[in-house]
């Protein structure tokens, strides 16, 4: 698996898109910090970008890599290697190279700016951790979609639709539901609904640091416990890990029956 990972990783690290992605974050980091001079604000803007863009890029890279390397994967499948190792290798290769682009692209400007002296270091690290999680989750989800869809165009379509759904539509339905049923106690429901969407979950994780003063304005006891203690942080992290593990598990199950 490590060998496959290594070559997928090399391949991606040399791809033009990895550089574009890396440069995008690099420029973004510099622009936010040096034109703005406010680390807090930079972190907020970055959060907005990371929770929307990282999933999109992860999704696109995932399906693109799968379909583009289909024939090569067939060559690998004829080699004496376990199937699931081939795909896990590719999956980790993509996720790690994307995460590296993110961490280096944003990390360099922040380090140059003097982040280590700033109090925002924790918020910033959390942002990178969440970004990494989103990469791993959305590459896994898109691989699942690609594995289940033979047709490349359809696969792309489904993947983008999934992203659109989780990034925008889900919240729209969620908010509508909250507004329509606002005479009922909704705190448990809204926490649960958050857990079912990795983008919302990542957002909450960052909000716990950035907007805790607002979140503590809630009256519900469940909320108070969730936001007011470390419980929220721990549960969110745990569920994010589940969000990585379940698609990976499904990928492996699918692979057992999959014909190439």
């Amino acid at each position: 698996m490590l060998k496959i990972l290594k070559y997928s990783f090399y391949d991606l690290m040399r791809s033009r898109w990895s550089y574009v992605y890396f440069l995008f974050y690099l420029i973004l980091g510099f622009v936010l910090l040096f034109l703005n001079n406010d680390v807090d604000k930079a972190v907020i803007t970055l959060m907005n970008i990371i929770i929307v863009l990282t999933p999109l890029i992860g999704t696109i890279f995932g399906v693109m890599y799968y379909y583009n390397s289909k024939e090569f994967t067939e060559l690998l499948l004829a080699q004496p290697i376990n199937r699931s190792k081939i795909f896990m290798g590719q999956y980790l290769g993509i996720s790690i190279s994307l995460t590296l682009s993110l961490v280096l692209g944003l990390g360099i400007p922040f380090v140059l700016y003097g982040l280590f002296k700033s109090t925002a270091i924790f918020n910033f690290s959390l942002l990178l951790v969440v970004g990494a999680f989103l990469n791993f989750i959305f590459v896994a989800l898109s691989y699942n979609i690609a594995l289940s869809t033979e047709n490349k165009i359809k696969g792309f379509g489904y993947a983008i639709l999934m992203w659109l759904f989780l990034a925008v539509i889900y919240d729209g339905i969620f908010l509508t539901f909250l507004v329509v049923f606002n005479s009922y106690p909704l705190d448990k429901f809204s926490l649960a609904a958050t857990m079912f969407n990795p983008i919302d979950l990542s957002r909450i994780l960052i909000l716990l640091k950035l907007d805790i003063s607002a979140l503590l304005g809630y009256t519900g006891a469940v909320f108070r416990k969730f936001f007011g203690t470390n419980l929220g942080m721990m549960i969110s992290m745990g569920v994010l890990m589940l969000w990585v593990m379940l698609p990976v598990l499904r990928m492996n199950l699918k692979l057992r029956k999959k014909d190439f």
Partner: peptide, 9 residues
């Protein structure tokens, strides 16, 4: 294999 397609990079 029938179609030879390798990682381009």
């Amino acid at each position: 294999p029938q179609i030879a397609n390798f990682p381009p990079n």
